[in-house]
C-alpha cells in the first residue's frame, strides 16, 4: 500500500511524498504524489490517476486531515497526473486546480466546473499556500507542450513532474536516489523518448540550474538530493532527446 513520508519539515511547513505502491497492478505506471503543507492548508501536486485514488487518499488521511487540501496542481494533462480529479472534487467541491491554460478545456473532461480551474500562463505564476509563495516554473515540451514544475524557494524543493522520472525495476524501491549512475540508467530511455525537444531541454536546464535546489522530486521514480540534483541537470543537458523520430 502507498505510504506518506515527510521529506522536509520546518514547523508547519512540510513536504510529503506519497510514493511507491507495491499493491498496484503492474500495467499501471507507478507515480509519486507530493503534498505541500503550510499554515494549516495543503496543496497536492499531481494527485494521480483515478485507479489509485483510494490508495493515495488513504495514505494521506493516515497522516493529514484531507480537508486541509485546498489546492491541486497538475503539472500537465496526462491521466496518471490528474484523472482522479472528479473523485477529489466529489470529496471537496471547493478545491482549486492549477494547470497550464493550454489544458483548460481538456482537463474538465476528467471533471470540475469553470470555478475549479486556475489557468497558469505560459510564463508561470505564483501560487499562494499559507504563508508561502510557491512558483509554477515553465517546463513546456518536457514532455507535454503545456507543462509546469513547482518550486518552493524556502524548502529548496523542485517538483519536476516527468523531468527526472525513472522507470525503476521491482526491488529498486528507495525513496531517494542512492547510486546516481545505476539510477540514471533507468531514466535514460524515458527521457530520450518522452522528451521531444533538445531546445526546450537546454532552456529548462539553463533556468533550473540557477535555482537553489536541495531536492528534485519527479512524478515517477526516486528523488534526487544534494549533488545528485546538479548531476541530473548536467546529464539531462547532454542527453539527446526525441528518439521517436527515426532518420
Amino acid at each position: 500500500m502507498k505510504k506518506l513520508e515527510y521529506i522536509y519539515e520546518d514547523g508547519s511547513h512540510k513536504w510529503a511524498a506519497v510514493a511507491r505502491d507495491p499493491e498496484k497492478p503492474g500495467f499501471l505506471i507507478d507515480t509519486n504524489e507530493y503534498l505541500v503543507l503550510n499554515g494549516g492548508e495543503a496543496l497536492l501536486a499531481d494527485p494521480g490517476g483515478m485507479e489509485i485514488f483510494s490508495a493515495v487518499f488513504s495514505a494521506i488521511s493516515a497522516e493529514v486531515d484531507p480537508y486541509t487540501i485546498r489546492h491541486l496542481f497538475a503539472s500537465h494533462q496526462d491521466p496518471d497526473v490528474i484523472s482522479s480529479l472528479a473523485l477529489w472534487l466529489d470529496f471537496n467541491p471547493e478545491l482549486k486546480c492549477y494547470l497550464s491554460w493550454l489544458w483548460s478545456s481538456f482537463i474538465p473532461h476528467f471533471g470540475g466546473t469553470a470555478e475549479t480551474f486556475v489557468a497558469i500562463p505560459d510564463e508561470g505564476m505564483t501560487i499562494p499556500l499559507g504563508n508561502l509563495a510557491l512558483e509554477a516554473i515553465p517546463a513546456h515540451y518536457l514532455h507535454s507542450s503545456g507543462n509546469f514544475n513547482l518550486y518552493d524557494r524556502k524548502a529548496k524543493i523542485l517538483f519536476s513532474g516527468d523531468v527526472g522520472a525513472a522507470l525503476l525495476p521491482s526491488g529498486e524501491d528507495g525513496l531517494f536516489v542512492e547510486n546516481f549512475d545505476r539510477h540514471i540508467s533507468h531514466a535514460q530511455g524515458f527521457h530520450r523518448r518522452w522528451m521531444g525537444s533538445n531546445a526546450a531541454k537546454l532552456n529548462w536546464c539553463e533556468r533550473v540550474s540557477r535555482l537553489d535546489i536541495d531536492m528534485l522530486c519527479p512524478q515517477h521514480g526516486a528523488i534526487y538530493r544534494g549533488e545528485d540534483v546538479k548531476r541530473f541537470i548536467d546529464w539531462f543537458a547532454a542527453l539527446d532527446v526525441g528518439s521517436g523520430i527515426k532518420e
Partner: peptide, 20 residues
C-alpha cells in the same frame, strides 16, 4: 484501531470511485 480505520478509508474511497 488505526489499522482498521486505514482499511475503512481505503474501502470507502474505492466505493466513492465505483459510485462515480
Amino acid at each position: 484501531l488505526g489499522a482498521l480505520i486505514f482499511e475503512l478509508v481505503r474501502d470507502a474511497a474505492a466505493m466513492r470511485k465505483q459510485h462515480h
